[in-house]
Amino acid sequence: MSANAGSLADLQRAFQAFMLAGDTGFATKVRSGGRASREIGLAVYRDGYALRLIEALEIDYPGLMAMAGPADFELMARAFIAAHPSRHPSVRWFGRHLAAFLAATPPFSATPAAAEMARFEWALGEAFDAADTIPIDADALMSLASDSWPGLMLDPVPSFRRLTLAYAIPQAWAVREQAPPGELGVDPADRPTPWAIWRADETSTYRSLAPDEAALLDALAAGGTFLDMVGAVAPHTGEDEAPARTATTLRLFVEDGMIARFRLSD
C-alpha cells in the first residue's frame, strides 16, 4: 500500500467531501495513469452528483421549472442541494423540503409564488403515492338512520391533502406546458384560497373549496363528528342552514371519492 493511501473510512470521507464541497484532498488518493485522466474521472463524479439531484427536482417540479426557466431553476436547485444534502436512499424524496427552503431563503423568498408552487407540486406527488383505498359511496352514507348522524365521523382517503394558496397556483400549473420555459406567470388569487388535493382512481386531482367547505373538511380531518362539522359550517351559512349544507357537502365529497370510511362515535 502506498504512503498516501488511507483506511476505507478515510477514503470514503475524502470522496464525499470532494463530491459535496469540491474538497481537493481526495485527488491525492486517486491513481493517475489510466486512459482517462485523474481530473476527468473526478469531474465525472462531481458533475454527476449535482446533475442527478437537479434532474430529480425537475421531475417533481415541472411547474416551478416553467416559472423559473432552466438557468434560474438550476441556480435554485444548486442552492437547495448545498443546503439540504439527500438523506433518503430513494432520490424520490430528495425534494421534499424544497417549498420550505424557497419560503425561507433569499433571494427565492422574494417570490412567494415559487414556494407555493413547490408546496402544490409536492402535495400532488404525495397524493399519487399515497396508500390505496376504496372510497365509500353515497348510498352507504345516505342509508344511515337519522339518529346516527350527530355522531357520524368520516376519514378522508389517505391521499387527501389540504392547502391554502395566496396565488392562483393550480390554474398556472394546469397550463405549465403551454408557456415557454421561464415565462409561466402566476397571479395572486383574489383572496387566500383553500384547495383539496386527492387521488381519484389512478390520477391526482384537486379542486378549490368554498370557505364553508374548507371549514367542514378541516373539522372532518381533525376527527370531528357531524355536529362538530355543522358547528364549523355555521359561521358561514347561519345556524339554520348549517345542518343541511353540511349533509349536502359531505355527499359531494363522498361522490368525489374523498372519503375512505365512516364510523359512529361512542
Partner: peptide, 10 residues
C-alpha cells in the same frame, strides 16, 4: 456516508 446519500455508485 454519515447518512448523506450521494445517489451514485462510488
Amino acid at each position: 456516508l454519515d447518512g448523506v446519500q450521494m445517489h451514485d455508485l462510488l
